[in-house]
Structure formats: structure tokens, C-alpha cells
């Protein structure tokens, strides 16, 4: 069992749907929403609970739309 568990929060209105975060995510956590944001982009979202909080997606996000949290499990 993973000792850490992460979670991402995507700023939906900043996301432009470039999908660079999807290829950066090693755990295949991120997927595109079927919904649109106000600008008309499909935005990225967390699709499962495998996130480890490695921040790779947030580093490559050109728009700085991703905030990452990581908690230790005891």
C-alpha cells in the first residue's frame, strides 16, 4: 500500500486543455473532462485515486492550473 497519497486540484478556468499533464503523469491519474470551461476548453481532471503527489503534472502545466497536495498515511 502506498505510504503517501496525493490529490490534484485543477483550476478549471485556467486550464486550456493542452493535455501535456496527461503525458507527464506516470500513474495515469489525469483525464479530460467531457464538460467545457467558460472559454470552451475541455479541462483536465483527476480520474482515479492513484495520485502520489509527485507534482510532475503541475511542473509541466504551462498555465499553472494544477495545485498538488500530498498526505502521509500512517
Amino acid at each position: 500500500m502506498a505510504k503517501v497519497k496525493g490529490e490534484i486540484i485543477v483550476d478549471i478556468e485556467r486550464c486550456k486543455g493542452c493535455q501535456v499533464c496527461i503525458s507527464a503523469c506516470k500513474e495515469n491519474v489525469i483525464g479530460m473532462s467531457k464538460n467545457l470551461n467558460r472559454k470552451g476548453y475541455h479541462f483536465a481532471q483527476s480520474t482515479n485515486e492513484d495520485c502520489t503527489g509527485c507534482i510532475n503534472c503541475a511542473l509541466v502545466c504551462p498555465d499553472g492550473a494544477i495545485t498538488v497536495y500530498r498526505a502521509r498515511l500512517n
Partner: peptide, 25 residues
């Protein structure tokens, strides 16, 4: 998980809240 003490990465406050005018990606 999403509590302030667990925050590991967020956009620095030296970037303004203005939406970037650059193309996606």
C-alpha cells in the same frame, strides 16, 4: 488530503491571476 499543511505545489504568487495569453501547451 487537500488541507493547507499538505500543500506541495501551487502556482507562485509572483505570477498574477491574469489568464496567460499564450496558446494551449
Amino acid at each position: 488530503i487537500c488541507k493547507p499543511e499538505n500543500l506541495v505545489y501551487s502556482r507562485t504568487h509572483l505570477m498574477t491571476d491574469a489568464a496567460l495569453s499564450y496558446c494551449p501547451g
